[in-house]
């Protein structure tokens, strides 16, 4: 039973980490139907910025929750700037061209950003400080859940709810839904499409940056390559949940996390990714639009 609980918690942690990144994928996809391959790189840049910021601020004497929050804020701002720029440079000129053109330019962007960080910073793994302060009441259950895991979990839930509220109830959210449904109609109705898409990238990048900070705290080491692996898993999770759906991204990520974790525990960790991918294929065969995705009737 303990073993089961252990695996459950590890699946939950893994799932919530994937979810943090998957939310950004699914948002961008929902609005402009683009698999943003550079999203994983934005997350990686968020983590690097956070590392640099924490060292500068740390030497200025900041610590505790204050340090964590200010580091997260700086990382969010920088990642948002990067996300915005990437959209301006690599995707905006391609609006209206074939679906695959922006995909390829996204891949180019991803290669560029990876190498940029490798050259500007380091090809090695760097130590990421554990920025999450001690949470005393967790001590008795530390065997199951660490403080970083708790913060990640809470943050994932918080951002999912926050995003849903944002999309449902704010003006920008409404504009986003309009653009997602029909760009031409939205433009006719007076929605500034460029602004909406930029906003989507900015929000997605902020989420990625916060993910970068939290995952950095949990892994305690980062390299220029972390975006690729996490990005691929998160993208898989987003599709599994029904790409474009915000709760879907979280559900998909959790299923992927649990599948990996239980497969590692009860099958073999050598084969856990195989098991996870097989589950994914089976789910998609029976629910071709993803778990939470809506079936689309195709118009002729």
């Amino acid at each position: 039973m303990n073993f089961f609980l252990d695996l459950f918690m590890s699946g939950l942690t893994k799932g919530s980490i994937y979810a943090l990144i998957a939310l950004g994928y699914t948002m961008v996809y929902g609005i402009i139907a683009l698999i943003n391959f550079a999203h994983g790189e934005i997350y990686m840049i968020g983590a690097f910025t956070a590392l640099l910021a924490s060292m500068v601020l740390g030497s200025l004497g900041l610590s505790g929750w204050g340090l964590l929050l200010s580091v997260a804020a700086i990382a969010a701002v920088y990642s948002a700037m990067y996300g915005w720029t990437v959209e301006r440079v690599a995707y905006k000129p391609l609006r209206g061209s074939s679906r695959l053109a922006p995909l390829i330019s996204a891949i180019g962007m991803s290669i560029f950003l990876q190498n940029y960080v490798q050259l500007a910073q380091s090809p090695n793994f760097l130590v990421f400080p554990d920025l999450v302060p001690q949470i005393d009441f967790l001590a008795p259950v530390a065997r199951y859940i660490s403080r970083t895991q708790l913060v990640i979990l809470l943050f994932t839930v918080f951002s999912m709810v926050g995003l849903t509220v944002f999309i449902k109830f704010t003006k920008m959210g409404m504009a986003m839904r309009a653009v997602a449904q029909d760009q031409t109609m939205a433009r006719l109705a007076g929605v500034n499409i460029d602004k909406v898409i930029s906003a989507t990238f900015v929000i997605g990048s902020i989420l990625a940056a916060l993910g970068g900070v939290l995952i950095g705290c949990s892994m305690r080491q980062i390299s220029f390559y972390i975006g690729f692996i996490a990005g691929m898993k998160a993208f898989t999770a987003a599709v599994l949940g029904g790409i474009g759906s915000i709760p879907g991204a979280v559900v998909g990520a959790l299923i992927l996390g649990f599948a990996e974790s239980f497969a590692a525990g009860y099958v073999s960790s050598s084969y856990k990714d195989v098991v996870a991918f097989i589950i994914l294929i089976i789910i998609l065969i029976f629910r071709p639009e993803g778990i939470m995705g809506q079936a689309q009737t195709q118009k002729v």
Binding site: V89, A90, P93, L94, A101, P102, I104, S105, I107, G108, M109, S110, I111, F112, L113, Q114, N115, Y116, L119
Partner: peptide, 12 residues
Amino acid sequence: LIFGALMVLMMV
């Protein structure tokens, strides 16, 4: 680095 940038440029 240049290869990635060229991929973006060619596509754009």
